[in-house]
Simulated assay, not measured.
Amino acid sequence: MGKSINHMMVAVLTLLAAFAGESAAAGPPVATVSAEQLADGAVTYRAIAPNSIANSKILDGAVSDAKLGFGAVTTPKIADGAVTDAKITGPIAGTKLGRHGHDAADIVQGTIDIARLPVGTGPEMVAAGNHTHPGLKKPANVIVVARSGGDFTNPLEALNAISDASADNPYLVKIMPGIYDLGLATLVMKEYVDIEGSGETTTRLRGSGGSAGVVAGASQAELRNLTVEAGGVDGEVVGIFNGNASPRLSHLAVEVHGEKSSFGIYNMMAAPRLSDVIVSVTGSDTTFGIFNLHSSPEIRNATVTAGNGIYTASSGTVLLEGSAITGSILTIYNDSGTTTRIANTRLAGGRIANNGLLSCAGVYDDTFLPVSCP
């Protein structure tokens, strides 16, 4: 029996030893340590074995700015490619970026240093702020009137802006295509200032200036390459009025319509020179194409249509060459004390009335039959 007890004790001790060995091999039981159970500073850098904290052990957002010391995350601690676009929120200041390039579409505001621009005058280069373009310089003493992009939008303002025109300092007012309505105002020409339109069919001066005219002429000046249109219902209507002035009028169209007396070109104590002028005057009362009072105009290559074509009164000498005059009442009226000389001109419609000195050479009617001056 004593021997049996000994065998039993050995067996128990063997079992206990085996259990103790298994327990020792299994190690202590595993427990979870939360952040609240760790005192501030308890886990130091030295207490963490190298590479023991993997990304999978850090919850998203667990490492906040407040938990990182100033300068703790240095460049060597950031793996290449670890900072992706998805991990960057908000703008990044240019000062935090190294040397880099941008496409034009990337630049939405701000300025570019001139050192970054190819400055010069060649192709694909940017001109400097103090550059000059000799070929694009505006000519001196040229004022442009245009509906947009010119110096003025109204020819009245352009003329009013000139105060120093002279024989040694002449001006040109260039009127670009368009209709310029002057209303009741008169465009008064100035000496040594030419007014040039862009063509009779493209530049039109329109107004109802009455007896003062839509345009008033001036000596030592020319009006050319445009149309003057006058209209009105009260009083006389005048397209161009030359009072004691002798302008050049060339490549013009003058269109006048009035309910009372209407005049295409009215010359008073004037000696204008007209060439390549088309005058058309209509109305319910007496109409005059070119009316001369104490005046001596030279008229060449003119086409005149009115109740009375060329009407000269009181005194003066009219020279008419290479023209076509149509008058429903009179083609030519030559008053006492006046002289009219006509050459190579067609007279159609009305008759010739002559009380002064009239001479004709190569004058014919609308059927191209010769016309004798009375």
Score class of each variant (00 low, 15 high):
V318I: 15
A361S: 15
G307A: 05
M125C: 07
L274F: 07
A212M: 07
L293S: 13
G129L: 13
G322T: 12
L226V: 10
D40G: 08
S56A: 08
G69H: 13
G120S: 10
R351E: 14
A158D: 03
A127W: 15
L223V: 03
G362V: 11
T14H: 02
L249V: 10
Y266A: 09
T331Y: 02
L249G: 09
I88R: 14
P297C: 14
D113S: 14
A25P: 00
V119G: 08
K260W: 01
F291C: 04
N130A: 12
G349H: 04
V142C: 15
N354C: 14
I299H: 11
M1G: 15
R99M: 08
A62G: 02
S250L: 01
G264H: 01
G356A: 03
G217L: 07
K87W: 05
G178A: 11
V173E: 08
A353F: 09
A245K: 04
A302I: 09
S323N: 15
E22H: 02
T84C: 02
V193F: 10
A66R: 05
A158P: 03
E22V: 13
K138G: 05
A105P: 00
P123M: 05
N354W: 06
S328G: 06
V108W: 03
V228T: 11
A79E: 15
R99V: 12
A105H: 01
S219Y: 02
V119W: 08
N354M: 04
G207I: 14
R273M: 13
A82C: 00
T32K: 06
G94H: 01
A270L: 01
I329L: 09
G356E: 02
F152N: 00
G135I: 07
H100W: 04
S23L: 06
L205S: 05
N344M: 09
Y171K: 09
G41K: 02
T326S: 14
I58L: 14
N267R: 05
V279M: 05
R248N: 11
A24I: 05
V304A: 11
F70T: 13
A140I: 12
A25C: 03
G197I: 11
V63I: 15
A128F: 09
S359Y: 07
S23P: 01
G232C: 00
A31H: 09
G239F: 02
R341T: 11
G98I: 07
S166F: 13
E222M: 10
H257M: 03
D181A: 12
A18M: 14
E255P: 01
M176A: 08
K77T: 11
G199T: 12
Y171D: 12
F368G: 01
P28L: 04
S323R: 09
G362L: 06
G110W: 07
T121G: 15
I265P: 03
L205I: 12
V193L: 08
L187M: 03
A270Q: 04
R206D: 14
R99G: 11
D181E: 08
S314N: 11
N6G: 07
R273T: 15
A212K: 15
R224L: 05
P272L: 08
D285W: 07
N301M: 13
I78C: 02
V228H: 03
P123L: 06
E229A: 08
R248I: 10
V144I: 13
D103N: 11
G213F: 08
T303V: 14
T340Y: 04
R300Q: 14
S250R: 09
G207V: 14
T75K: 10
T95N: 05
T287Y: 06
G61V: 07
C373M: 06
H100N: 09
H294Y: 14
E222T: 10
G197M: 08
